[in-house]
């Protein structure tokens, strides 16, 4: 029965209850097009959450990735327009690389100066965003100018259906990209030594270094990887909404961190899984998007997200305390 106590199972249970609850308020929730659009909304937050998950397992935190994502996205789209390039693979590679380079900056300060990641990433995030808006520009690139390849790529669907009234809807293929990345991160965390090094670092930094982990490698890996994921997600986002807005993603870090915490990761490091994070992301996105379905005014969104963060962290704090109490008594 040990699996019953796994946090993923608990989260999945709560998620199911919430879905049933929302479905009772408005059965439209269960319609396939609603579920498909929910999944679609998971993609961007989900990909970013994978990066934040790795950082949180290592005992850090990152609030700079939205700035990295928007900078990588905007610069890449500008570059595509400027060069007239019309491929898909290279731009995504470029955006991811840019994100990784920004991530290096975080890693450098966290590793070299052993400064609290929150403060480092507050600084780098503000720098990157300030640079983008102050030097590169503030004007949006809208659908008339957006490279068609990006939009077409993001339009790809795995399932397409037609409703009775003739309108079509479908499940975006970007979900597969998200799932693919999730599996990749899961494999890294579970089956590679660098992945185990992330858990080791989050468990006990001193012991990790004594055991022979190259902490510099691990720290650079996680912050760069998280940056790359953010850059990738940023560009994907612009393709999905047909718009490259240099002021995008403001405040997104709160949603993503909330989702990761909701997914059972510990802010003190050492604990967290990909599956849990994906469930956390789904929960957050579902609640946010279902406000309309439940006929609640959308201005309440921030309040709801805040309340969810508080409740989720309260539950986690309670769980950690119980674990600690058990450890003390033995």
């Amino acid at each position: 029965m040990a699996w019953l106590r796994r946090s993923e199972v608990v989260i999945a249970g709560i998620l199911l209850l919430a879905m049933i609850g929302i479905g009772l308020v408005n059965p439209a929730f269960w319609q396939l097009d609603n579920l498909f659009s929910l999944l679609r909304s998971n993609v961007i937050i989900g990909i970013m959450a994978l990066g934040v998950l790795m950082i949180m397992i290592s005992g850090g935190i990152d609030v700079s990735f939205p700035a990295f994502a928007v900078a990588a996205m905007y610069l890449t789209v500008k570059g595509m327009l400027w060069t007239g390039y019309d491929g898909v693979a290279l731009p995504f590679l470029t955006a991811a690389t840019m994100g990784a380079l920004f991530g290096c900056l975080n890693a450098f300060f966290v590793y070299k100066f052993r400064m609290i990641p929150l403060i480092v990433t507050l600084g780098t995030g503000s720098m990157v965003r300030g640079f983008l808006l102050g030097v590169v520009g503030t004007s949006m690139i809208n659908i008339n100018k957006m490279p068609d390849v990006l939009i077409d790529f993001a339009k790809t669907e795995v399932i397409s259906m037609t409703k009775a009234d003739g309108t079509t809807y479908g499940l975006t293929a970007m979900v597969l990209v998200y799932f693919g990345l999730a599996i990749l991160v899961h494999l890294i965390l579970r089956y590679t030594m660098i992945g185990r090094g992330i858990y080791a670092l989050g468990g006990d930094q001193e012991a990790a270094s004594r055991a022979g982990f190259d902490l510099r490698k691990v720290i650079f890996f996680i912050y760069c990887f998280a940056g790359a994921l953010a850059g990738f997600a940023g560009l994907l986002h612009s393709g999905m909404i047909w718009l490259a807005n240099p002021r995008d993603f403001v405040g997104l870090e709160l949603d993503v961190i909330a989702a990761v915490v909701l997914g059972g990761a510990s802010i003190f490091g050492g604990r967290g899984t990909v599956l849990g994070t994906m469930l956390g992301v789904f929960m957050l996105v579902m609640v946010k998007n279902s406000l309309i379905i439940m006929k609640i005014d959308t201005t309440w969104q921030r309040v709801v997200v805040g309340v969810i963060i508080v409740i989720a962290t309260a539950v986690t704090a309670w769980r950690d305390q119980k674990r600690k109490a058990r450890g003390d008594r033995t």
Binding site: A200, G203, D204, A211
Partner: peptide
């Protein structure tokens, strides 16, 4: 302080050093 990882299992704690010494990249 034993230099152990409290968040990992006994098995992984025991095998960690061997894995690192053999310069393995993957976890079996």
């Amino acid at each position: 302080d034993f230099s152990l990882f409290g968040n990992l299992t006994v098995a992984e704690n025991l095998a960690m050093n061997t894995q690192l010494r053999q310069k393995r990249r993957l976890m079996n």
